[in-house]
């Protein structure tokens, strides 16, 4: 009984109350209005803004923690951190470019229409309308009712297919090609420059002389 009381309190104060508080906030009022109106710019801005925030914070944390991680060999540590920095910066840049290009609804519609536009043109639509007319489910509908319901279903289907196509192109172009191929490809050489930036202020590394004794205690104290 004690445990269930604690659990209930944890759920109430840890989950329900905060979520209820968010759901009643002014911010959510604004978000709901825009999501209901399908304000695409607003929705896309939230999606991209979230990605940038997550990538930005991730980049900061990864760089900070990598630099401080004594378990990573010292000569590799700075490169690992520099790669994180270059990756993070480029990732944000890639998201913004994608937002303006391949993930942009107008661009996606253009690509979709180029490949599949003809399949949704009016004469083709009329053809499908005629093709489905004889199905038993629609026999009782009048010509006008049938046309109206078919049009609604066809438009919904069309926008659904367009939406899926958009998500798939974004997934392939952004998630795989841009974020996992182009970004690491550019970030790796860029990391060398970033490494220089992270090393600013550090003492210059002394090259180890072949003849220098680095093992004896005397040698260490003179270093």
């Amino acid at each position: 009984m004690g445990i269930s009381k604690v659990m209930n309190s944890a759920v109430t104060f840890g989950v329900r109350k905060p979520l209820n508080w968010v759901s009643n906030s002014k911010l959510m009022k604004n978000v709901c209005e825009n999501y209901q109106d399908k304000n695409l710019k607003y929705i896309a801005a939230w999606a991209v803004g979230s990605m940038i925030l997550k990538d930005g914070l991730g980049c900061y944390l990864y760089v900070k923690q990598s630099l401080a991680n004594k378990n990573i060999p010292e000569e590799k540590r700075k490169f690992v951190a520099a790669l994180d920095l270059a990756n993070g910066g480029l990732m944000i840049l890639a998201q913004l470019i994608m937002f303006k290009t391949i993930s942009n609804k107008k661009v996606q519609e253009g690509i979709f229409d180029k490949f599949y536009g003809k399949l949704f043109e009016r004469p083709v639509k009329k053809g499908y309308q005629a093709l489905l007319r004889n199905r038993p489910e629609f026999k009782n509908l009048s010509k006008v009712e049938y046309a109206k319901e078919f049009n609604q279903a066809f438009n919904k289907f069309h926008s659904g297919i367009k939406g899926t196509f958009g998500l798939l192109t974004t997934l392939v172009a952004s998630t795989i090609i841009a974020k996992r191929i182009i970004v690491p490809f550019i970030a790796t050489p860029l990391a060398e420059r970033a490494k220089g930036l992270l090393s600013k202020g550090d003492k210059k590394e002394q090259p180890i002389s072949k003849d220098k004794d680095t093992f004896t205690p005397e040698a260490k104290t003179t270093k």
């Binding site: 489905l132 509908l141 297919i161």
Partner: peptide, 21 residues
């Protein structure tokens, strides 16, 4: 009927559209 229309359209559309769907 709306569900039937969707099902019907999926079955008569070309293969490329069915794949996207």
């Amino acid at each position: 009927r709306a569900a039937e229309f969707e099902k019907g359209l999926k079955s008569v559309m070309p293969k490329s559209i069915q794949t996207i769907s």
